[in-house]
């Protein structure tokens, strides 16, 4: 037997996910799982699951987990940490959950500096419900509730989570990354590791926005979706570290 240089993370249960081929939700779960294993905190990790395509993640999380109401994950996580201050919570939320119905919970938890780590899968669309426009949908991008393409005069402009949250004093790490090639995947994992290290060290709130894909509702192949992130999305959502304090 040789040496395993890459194994499946134990954070995921030994079963396939329901995510569409090429969807980045699964990739984000995998990277977080690898980070939690490398940081040695799997035994006190809790997945805080939101409502969206990742809602059924309770079938995949191989650690204690709690499924929240739509938009309320940051509030629920606040309650979990109040009861279990030494637990390590991983909030996985989409743009609908985090920027629309749950915007108050997002900003308020960040404003309080809750010691939690939020992973924001920004794919510019409501996936689970079949492709409706989201707060992050690009101008001109088609969705089932803006079939002619998002018109800013009717539906406003894309909302930028990192820029908003970085204006708050309490958050320690606010960053936006992508997954369309190996360097970016490595960078994403590095930032995730720092974000969860902050939580371990009880430094407070960390927010990692990951530009994500939705091949099915974008009507693109997984490869074209990654290209779309690189060429179109990144222009509207510039990558970078918006805040990084000790």
């Amino acid at each position: 037997m040789g040496e395993m240089i890459y194994k499946r993370t134990d954070f995921l249960k030994a079963r396939p996910t329901h995510y569409c081929p090429g969807c980045t939700h699964g990739l984000e779960h995998k990277l977080v799982g690898e980070v939690l294993e490398e940081l040695g905190v799997i035994d006190r990790s809790i997945m805080v699951i939101s409502v969206g395509c990742s809602a059924p993640a309770y079938d995949y999380a191989n650690v204690d987990n709690i499924a929240c109401l739509h938009g309320r994950a940051p509030a629920t996580a606040t309650g979990v940490k109040a009861a279990l201050p030494d637990s390590i919570v991983y909030l996985h939320q989409g743009d609908g959950d985090l920027l629309s119905i749950g915007l108050d919970e997002t900003i308020s938890a960040a404003g309080r500096g809750e010691n939690i780590t939020v992973v924001f899968a920004n794919n510019n669309i409501y996936g689970m419900t079949g492709g409706q426009m989201a707060a992050t949908t690009l101008i001109g991008q088609k969705a089932t509730t803006c079939p002619a393409g998002r018109d800013p005069h009717l539906d406003g402009y894309p909302m930028k989570a990192c820029e908003m949250i970085a204006t708050l004093t309490a958050p320690k790490l606010v960053a936006r990354t992508a997954l369309y090639d190996i360097p970016h995947i490595i960078q994403t994992k590095k930032i995730l590791k720092k974000a969860f290290q902050n939580q371990i060290d009880k430094k407070g709130y960390s927010f990692v926005e990951i530009l994500s894909t939705c091949p099915t509702n974008w009507h693109m192949s997984p490869q074209a979706s990654m290209e779309h992130v690189k060429n179109e999305m990144e222009e509207v959502y510039p990558l970078g570290i918006f805040k990084d304090e000790d």
Binding site: M1, G2, E3, M4, I5, Y6, K7, R8, T9, L12, P16, T17, Y19, G22, C23, T24, H25, G26, L27, K30, G33, L179, I182, I185, I186
Partner: peptide, 17 residues
Amino acid sequence: CKSCAMTCPDAAITIEK
């Protein structure tokens, strides 16, 4: 180089040296 395994969104790839 593990690129395939790293990018796999379903953690389907394992690599043994």
